[in-house]
């Protein structure tokens, strides 16, 4: 079992608030890891630090053998990490296709001459990209295919979340960070979403996923391993069944001993 992502002593302060407190965490390749904990325990901060949105105060983040602690977001993405956001961050005026293509940035030819002058070659790349995006969208919601060039603003929340996941998956990352993907969805929609994620993972054998969730049924169902955070510290880890019955975890969530 190789370690894909590892943090050592990760600390992040905001003014007086300690969001991450000497966090040691490791994620094994090809697993699905659940990251849980009460509100404010540092889960999203963890994602933000790993993806370079926040700087760390102290500690180290190593991904696939490379130290990415001080790297900028674009560099980190190129090492193979993609993510979704807790508060859906799609570009609303842009089409489904455009939004997904933003996720595909590193695979598209960005040269100015190519884009402006070599229109025939561009057309070929465009059509290939369209097919790739379409294949992905079909897994999650086939009815969205005919709306590929409609603005995302007109979509329902659950469809927007699906597109956001497509955006994160289009360039076949090694590590996918999902931040509360089921927020705002019904139970059936959540189950469907999880099925879709598992299906894509089946197509892409080398995908590792870390998922932040409050819906425990999801965590129980799809994760191989769980990490529980509280006040920026890891308080338990192991398979879901095990951490669910851990006394410290229960106290963190419910406040009972």
């Amino acid at each position: 079992m190789t370690t894909l992502l590892e943090t050592r002593g990760l600390t992040k302060n905001f003014g007086g608030v300690v969001a991450l407190d000497h966090l040691d965490l490791s994620v094994a390749s090809n697993t699905i890891v659940g990251l849980i904990g009460p509100n404010g325990s540092g889960k999203t901060t963890f994602f933000n630090v790993v993806t370079g949105i926040y700087n760390v105060d102290t500690g180290v983040v190593v991904f696939d053998g490379t130290d990415i602690t001080r790297a900028a977001s674009p560099t980190i993405h190129r090492t193979g990490i993609s993510r979704t956001f807790q508060r859906s961050r799609l570009s609303l005026p842009l089409s489904i296709f455009d939004n997904i293509m933003i996720g595909n940035h590193t695979r598209l030819t960005q040269g100015i001459w190519f884009n402006l002058m070599r229109r025939r070659a561009f057309m070929r790349e465009f059509e290939a990209s369209y097919l790739a995006a379409r294949r992905l969208v079909e897994v999650f919601e086939p009815r969205l295919v005919e709306r590929m060039f409609d603005p995302v603003a007109g979509l329902a929340m659950i469809d927007r979340r699906r597109i956001e996941i497509c955006r994160a998956m289009i360039n076949q990352p090694k590590l996918l960070l999902l931040d509360e993907p089921s927020a705002g969805m019904t139970h059936e929609e959540t189950t469907a979403l999880m099925d879709d994620i598992l299906q894509v993972r089946a197509l892409n054998q080398h995908l590792t996923i870390v998922i932040v969730e409050h819906e425990m049924s999801i965590i129980e169902r799809i994760t191989d391993h769980c990490v529980v955070l509280n006040f920026g510290r890891k308080i338990a880890e192991g398979p879901y069944r095990q951490v669910a019955t851990d006394a410290q975890v229960q106290e963190a969530y419910l406040g009972v001993t």
């Binding site: 977001s73 842009l94 996720g103 590193t106 884009n115």
Partner: peptide, 23 residues
């Protein structure tokens, strides 16, 4: 073109654009 898309991405949401490799 993809360049026009890059511009849109960075205009609409710089943080997210950075997270997908846009310089």
């Amino acid at each position: 073109s993809w360049i026009g898309l890059n511009f849109d991405a960075l205009r609409l949401d710089e943080t997210a654009a950075g997270c997908f490799g846009i310089d």
